[in-house]
Write a protein that binds this DNA or RNA. Structure first.
Length: 516
RNA sequence: GGGCCGUUAGCUCAGUUCGGCAGAGCACCGGACUUUUAAUCCGGGUGUCGUGGGUUCGACCCCCACACGGCCCA
């Protein structure tokens, strides 16, 4: 630690010591506030309107919506209330001082005058930016028109021991923003609303699904087989069982067991873990919604997805139209429905049906300028072609339908289209946000599909393919009704709805490399 | 995994042309100030220039390696 930083900490420590010498507890166990900053200001403005004899007086008082914790009583006596918050700015002028106190509801100014506070005013010289302060007093309007609490008593509620980031430019260092998110929240006012919206989006998803009769369930995070997705899992070890376990990469195979067990409609909103790279739309742990509905197919799921996403947008944003760069993405249904094979042909000139084997498709992909490794499975090649030629065009919400079977071991074959399955992925802003199948429920076919995946794993040395789950096959042999399933990446949905360019801006604590 | 860019005071950033005394604003410290709001005025620069090597009379600057981060590619 630098000497300079030592100095800054020492200065705060000596202020802390002085408080203790004066028998002031810098960390009192509690402080009773009667309302928050927004409520205090609203109450004062309501009272002003009332005293002016306006006909909206009574209504205005009702407009006060204090955001208080459980147990606190709303109190809007503007001549005597108490507020508490973090000092985010301080203007000291001899025997008076103005402080800005920030709480979750906003910022309120406090006026501290020696006239009112007497000896209590001495506290000012031991206050720092970042301290938490309780202020009791009356709401007034200053000469310059600012609604302010005129303090008659002060209470230190927590002494801050480190300097805050700079107030005007905020905290720009992205590394520090992610490693010390609390500083990002304190210094950058645009950050907190994104996470408030994230919470509302998640809440809205639950409401939507609950209202449709879906049951929210919890399935294991620690699993013996990491199935249900093409991804490399994290490995861990259970000591008492002395068994290797994986962190789940999807919830699919357990949710399907529940459909087999007899639930009609289930969903899980949970964290899944994929041991893969980190970039603007990948974090190793992320929030996945999966839902399964008996007697639905992927067409029904498409309708549900467009209805759900547009409903969430209306619910949380009040509109289905969301800015994205220079575009406006409109989530209002219906979303366009296009065939994977057609789109690939349209944008790359390749008809995958004309390249039935790896070698010819691989050669053609190389011809198109793609970098192709010597050993790449057909599934990977098609995935690469899609990412390169098709996905960037899918800016408006689009269902890309009917995937090759080799890419989709858990989906049911599409009648009349050999080699294809009833699967869609939903895209918006060129980014995949959802994946859905008419679920495969023939246990013999499922076994064959798993075997094909294991063959790909062996032949192509590719760990990112589905794994055989014998226990799941056993369950399926007891009979799973026709089912429509859905997986939706919640972080990406939040990115789209809040116009954030990186998943790190919608995950509170994104994964970072440990510092040396 | 590869390429490019970044890392300088607590924070936000200059400085590196072509190697020659380490800079500003905010924050901080001392002083003035009872209606300010990026308060103002006077005084003070507080630093392992990411880390470790190398070149040089001399390195924040040039070279090499490494660390962390960002962007692009795979």
């Amino acid at each position: 630690m630098s000497d300079r930083q030592d100095d800054l900490l020492t200065s705060r420590q000596s202020k802390l010591d002085r408080l203790r010498e004066r028998h002031i507890d810098p960390y009192p166990p509690r402080y009773h506030r009667t309302c928050d900053a927004a409520a205090a200001i609203a109450a004062f403005e309501a009272a002003e309107r009332q005293s002016q004899g306006g006909d909206d007086g009574g209504e205005a008082a009702d407009g006060v919506r204090p955001q208080l914790e459980h147990g606190e009583q709303p109190e809007t006596d503007i001549s005597n209330l108490s507020l508490a918050g973090r000092i985010v700015s301080m203007r000291v002028m001899g025997r008076a001082a103005f402080l800005d106190l920030q709480d979750a509801s906003g910022t309120v100014q406090a006026l501290l005058r020696q006239n009112n506070l007497g000896e209590g005013f001495d506290l000012v010289k031991d206050l720092d930016l970042g301290d938490h302060l309780g202020v009791a007093g009356a709401m007034i309007r200053t000469r310059t028109g600012q609604v302010t609490i005129d303090a008659h008593s002060l209470t230190v509620t927590c002494k801050g021991m480190r300097p805050l980031p700079e107030k005007y430019h905020g905290l720009r260092d992205v590394e520090m923003r992610y490693r010390q998110r609390y500083l990002d929240m304190i210094a950058n006012p645009e950050v907190m609303p994104v996470f408030v919206q994230r919470s509302r989006i998640v809440s809205s998803i639950r409401n939507f699904l609950n209202n449709r009769g879906f049951l929210e369930v919890d399935t294991p995070v620690l699993v013996p087989v990491a199935g249900g997705a093409h991804a490399r899992p994290f490995l861990t070890h259970h000591n008492a069982l002395d068994e290797e376990l994986y962190l789940r990469i999807a919830t699919e195979l357990y949710l399907k067991r529940l459909i087999i067990g007899g639930f009609d409609k289930v969903y899980e909103l949970g964290r899944v873990f994929r041991n893969e790279g980190i970039d603007q739309d990948h974090n190793p742990e992320f929030t996945l919604l999966e839902s399964y509905e008996a007697y639905a197919d992927y067409n029904d799921v498409m309708e549900m997805v467009e209805s759900m996403v547009s409903g969430i947008a209306l619910d949380v944003l009040g509109t289905t139209r969301v800015p994205h760069g220079e575009d406006i993405i409109d989530f209002a249904p219906p979303w366009s429905r296009v065939q994977l094979r057609d789109e690939l042909l349209k944008h790359s000139g390749i008809d995958i049906d004309n390249y039935p084997d790896d070698a010819s498709l691989s050669a053609q992909a190389r011809e198109m300028g793609l970098e192709v490794a010597p050993l790449e499975s057909r599934g990977r090649l098609i995935d690469k072609l899609l990412s390169t030629f098709v996905e960037p065009h899918l800016v408006q919400p689009t269902f890309l339908m009917d995937y090759p079977e080799v890419m989709s071991p858990l989906a049911k074959a599409k009648p009349g289209a050999p080699g294809y399955v009833e699967r869609f992925e939903a895209f918006a802003a060129g980014m995949e946000i959802a994946n859905s199948y008419t679920e495969l429920n023939d246990p013999a076919v499922q076994r064959a599909r798993f075997e094909a995946q294991e063959e790909v794993r062996a032949r192509y040395e590719d760990e990112e393919v589905d794994r055989t789950d014998e226990d799941f096959l056993l369950a399926m042999e007891y009979g799973m009704p026709p089912t429509g399933g859905l997986g939706m990446g919640i972080d990406r949905l939040v990115m789209l709805l809040t116009s954030q360019p990186s998943i790190r801006d919608v995950v509170l604590f994104p994964q970072m490399r440990r510092l040396p």
